[in-house]
Design a protein around this nucleic acid. Structure first.
Lengths: 244, 244
DNA sequence: CGCCAGGTTGATTTCGCTCAAGCAATGTGG
DNA sequence: CCACATTGCTTGAGCGAAATCAACCTGGCG
């Protein structure tokens, strides 16, 4: 009602590139209007925090662009990046909101990111008149839970080298640039330390494994640039049989 | 409409001992009636399977009594028991149902158990007209997800001895029998092999750690009977500081 | 009775952690 | 613009927890 300076491009959600991938699509026009009116978009610079561990949960955050990670501080005071990254189209913070808890981790922009905030009250209001919306979040949570259990399992069963190979291949799907010769270039969105914490390992160990992969000619690492030379071999290591 | 032999006591949910602990409480009388009518209760003997890995998810299973575990077969063909056990009051199978996936593991009765089956169609129908029901499942999923992530890091950070101590204390809450002298007797509901797989370890390692705890006088193991002699010391190991 | 799954124990190896040092890139204040 | 601290990354040496390999024990059970 008279906001003169918009913090960021307050585009209509309908025209948002990621809209179709979010849980928010499929609501009535009236509810969409309400959402558009109330949401607050804002740009976060790399390294900037979006919300903090222990904060009361005031609403949810829909990622329009960039990349957001969740950090926790472990018992020894180390910063740990959780495996679950927030890509464009992801809505963060719905879990504590619906569970009625505080934020369990600190959300940090891993790249410059545009994020829309939707207040808790509005979310609840929308949920009440859109049962499907709740179901979509439920669907999302169910998927995440499955993945988390899978990871737990993989972590215990596979050595670090395999886990790193796996993570590389996942990141490739989001950040990979395919070349004509079949090789792929990936820009890692995180530091090696974060890479380490994501897989429950130490940075030194990561370094060594990277060196190994390098020497074996599977991939070439240079800073955050990874040039995967032999994807097929990488895949073969993960699954010598070829189940899927 | 003419079933002559009921497979098990088809008690009204309202009178079920565990009803209050389930997600199903809090629905309208009409919906409850519908649930009561459609659910199918059945007794499973120890070792019997309730559903199989890879099966299409046909509905959810509410555990009335006993104990149910989820097994997976890992790459090397070993049977692995997932950490999340199904105690009375737990509803199993909601995750794959909501995520629209097949069952990711085989559910097996770890003790003689009474289990009620609720068909997928009915669950969806109930979810649509009971937003609260969805929220309760979401809440449940959120908790599980939090635990899974927590476990992931605990697993990487703590040595086996601590993890076993932790698991013992969890089992104590469900199966512990407190004595006057402050000691506790716990009947382990699983074999040592399963114990091992639950924490991502080998049976031999478990054996050794158990021997250690035994020699240190923290607990006495005899078959599946565990007599915890010094709970306070066990707790102290988990958290020398005393945060909580 | 012999069989077999579950469990224990011992010897050996290996993977990843700890501790410690050094290096490059970036930033900051004088 | 340079001296200096800081942060992220790499490398080496040594250690230790747990895996592996292998043998053997135990208690059901057909």
């Amino acid at each position: 009602m008279g906001d003169s300076k918009a913090p960021a491009s307050q585009t209509d959600c309908i025209f948002c590139k990621v809209f179709g991938r979010t849980e928010w699509s499929g609501m009535s026009a009236a509810d969409m209007a309400k959402l558009n009116e109330a949401k607050v978009c804002r740009q976060f610079d790399r390294g900037e925090a979006i919300f903090y561990e222990g904060d009361e949960c005031r609403g949810v955050y829909c990622i329009k662009s960039g990349l957001v990670g969740i950090r926790k501080i472990d018992g020894e005071g180390n910063s740990v990046l959780l495996g679950r990254l927030g890509y464009p189209g992801t809505t963060l913070g719905y879990r504590p909101l619906l569970a009625g808890e505080c934020h369990r981790g600190t959300a940090e922009a891993l790249e410059d990111s545009q994020v829309c905030f939707i207040a808790a009250g509005l979310v609840r209001w929308l949920l009440e008149r859109n049962p499907d919306l709740g179901l979509r979040f439920l669907h999302h949570a169910a998927k995440d839970l499955g993945n988390a259990e899978e990871d737990f399992f993989q972590n215990a069963a596979h050595p670090l080298r395999l886990r790193l190979a796996h993570l590389l291949l996942v990141l490739k799907d989001h950040y990979g640039e395919n070349f004509d010769d079949g090789t792929v270039m990936v820009e890692l969105p995180v530091t090696r330390q974060d890479l380490a914490s994501m897989m429950g390992a130490r940075p030194e160990s990561i370094s060594r494994v990277i060196k190994e992969l390098d020497q074996d000619g599977l991939a070439t690492f240079s800073g955050r640039q990874v040039h995967i030379q032999r994807i097929d071999d990488l895949l073969w290591e993960l699954d010598p049989a070829g189940e899927a």
